[in-house]
């Protein structure tokens, strides 16, 4: 049998006439931090729910560690879930919430308490164990939900956009913590998100979902630098797509190409090949939207090392020259990875 933590094969799910998941084959290795990235409605959450057992697939199979669990209810699967809304039990305090899974599995009271306290310490909430979830902040609740799932020592932890409701600072902090916890406990994490930064920062591998199918699976570098489709190029990072006549004129080749905004150099030099249509100041960087004479619209990102806001606004309407190195031109659909 395979040693994959999770194996999905021909997985489909329809809700009435709507096909939410349209055929997915995927293998996730033991101990991997795996992200499912995609816009809302792309089927990533439905796939997660089928792995957890909350939804029955219309077709296909779900295997956990080589065992077919497609028809098994959630309580007979060795996975735990961190829900998007945390789903903490409001009538139980923090430690009772964390103990719930152990209590259900009839772990002795003393061991239960020890393990729950250790799990709470691991998420740095040991001091709040008597608190009710209602009296906690979003970040704290999120960590209780994590402890409640991890305390059962599942083979796989499923996380359904767990950072979605947190503010930016807390989210960045939790990204680091989650990654660290995953490394410490060494279990497989399947992380659903619509946030490309989150997926790229934390994952060993990323699956990009598009309309119920997986558009690409790969390491963050592969997905970012060698997008398999123009959808992936557009969803993961800002992409500057060149195709048709513009591609022929600028690159001398036919096909669809992408150049990442940070790989483009913008100078005032001659000959100019475009005009600045929009200037967007974003603190550490500035984004320039440039309309190329060849008929494409490109986004250029520059670090704000010297420039001030005043000189930036004067750039609007100026003619500029965009250049890039040939190695940074990605041909969509062609995998350059070794």
């Amino acid at each position: 049998m395979s040693t994959h933590a999770i194996a999905l094969s021909g997985l489909r799910k329809s809700f009435g006439p709507v096909e939410a998941v349209a055929g997915i084959d995927l293998e996730i290795a033991d101990g991997e931090f795996f992200s499912m990235l995609g816009p809302s409605g792309s089927g990533k959450t439905t796939v997660l729910r089928m792995i957890a057992g909350f939804e029955l697939p219309t077709a296909g199979t779900v295997s956990l560690s080589g065992r077919d669990v497609t028809k098994l209810p959630p309580y007979e699967r060795d996975v735990n879930t961190v829900f998007q809304d945390y789903a903490l039990f409001p009538h139980l305090n923090v430690i009772e919430n964390v103990e719930y899974g152990l209590k259900v599995r009839k772990v002795a009271r003393k061991e239960r308490r020890t393990r729950a306290e250790a799990a709470l310490d691991a998420v740095r909430l040991g001091h709040l164990k008597d608190r009710r979830p209602g009296a906690m902040s979003g970040g704290q609740r999120q960590r209780v939900a994590l402890a409640r799932a991890l305390v059962n020592r599942p083979k796989v932890l499923l996380l359904d956009e767990p950072l979605g409701a947190l503010d930016l600072k807390l989210r960045e902090q939790m990204q680091v913590e989650l990654k660290q916890i995953q490394r410490d406990v060494g279990i497989t994490f399947v992380f659903v998100t619509h946030d490309q930064d989150e997926a790229l920062t934390m994952s060993d591998r990323v699956a990009v979902f598009d309309a119920g199918r997986i558009a690409q699976v790969g390491t963050p570098e592969e997905v970012y630098d060698h997008p398999a489709t123009s959808f992936v190029a557009g969803f993961v990072g800002t992409s500057n797509l060149l195709s048709g006549a513009a591609a022929e004129q600028l690159l001398g080749r036919a096909g669809t190409f992408s150049v990442r905004p940070e790989k483009i150099t913008m100078t005032a030099g001659e000959p100019a090949n475009g005009v600045v249509a929009e200037v967007i100041y974003a603190g550490p960087v500035t984004r320039f939207v440039v309309d190329l004479d060849a008929g494409a619209r490109m986004v250029v990102v520059e670090q704000n090392r010297r420039t001030g806001t005043k000189s930036l606004s004067e750039m609007r309407g100026k003619r500029v020259r965009l250049t890039w190195q040939d190695e940074h031109v990605i041909e969509i659909g062609v995998n350059h990875a070794p």
Binding site: F83, G101, R105, N152
Partner: peptide
């Protein structure tokens, strides 16, 4: 779902 997920 959380309760079922935790084995109940």
């Amino acid at each position: 779902e959380a309760s079922a997920d935790l084995g109940a």
